[in-house]
Amino acid sequence: MSSQKDAHRQANIPSDTAGSAAAHESETLTSELLERLLASATPEAYLDTTTLEGRGLHEFLLELLEQKKLTRSQVIRASGINGTFCYQLFQGARHPSRDTALMLSLGMNCDLQETQRILRLSGHAELWPRKSRDAIIIFCIEHGLSREQTDDELFRFGEKTLLDGGEG
């Protein structure tokens, strides 16, 4: 139980916090990068010698599609996002809002780490358990609920639903 709680705690700590204890390889790598940056004398010294995140959101989404053996039409139906907008997300032609990114991750059955990455790559704040709305969404993701079920839970708690906040 305690190890489970620890694992949850590690997964919930935003990756921009130094000393993140998250077990995922990229979280550890980010901490190492941060240490290297703080140890550099100038920004150029760090940037010239470090390969930063080169993958865009839509490349990551395409990777997820292939990995999870999903089709775009399935994701569009499951996420509730507008078809044209969602298709353009996969093309890299559009950029999602935070709620739309969450709808996308729920539509693709992403786990919490994948969801946090989608939020990070789309330039939004990651899910933070100290916020009640985020906590409900984290719970729903961890329990494998669909987008509609997540919205039902948010509505039950009097929180703004994802469909209301997204571009869907």
Binding site: T71, R72, S73, I76, R77, N82, G83, T84, Y87
Partner: peptide, 15 residues
Amino acid sequence: MDDERLLRLIEHDEN
């Protein structure tokens, strides 16, 4: 183009 028609086209493309 309505969503349902678009979805059918996307599904056809994915075939």
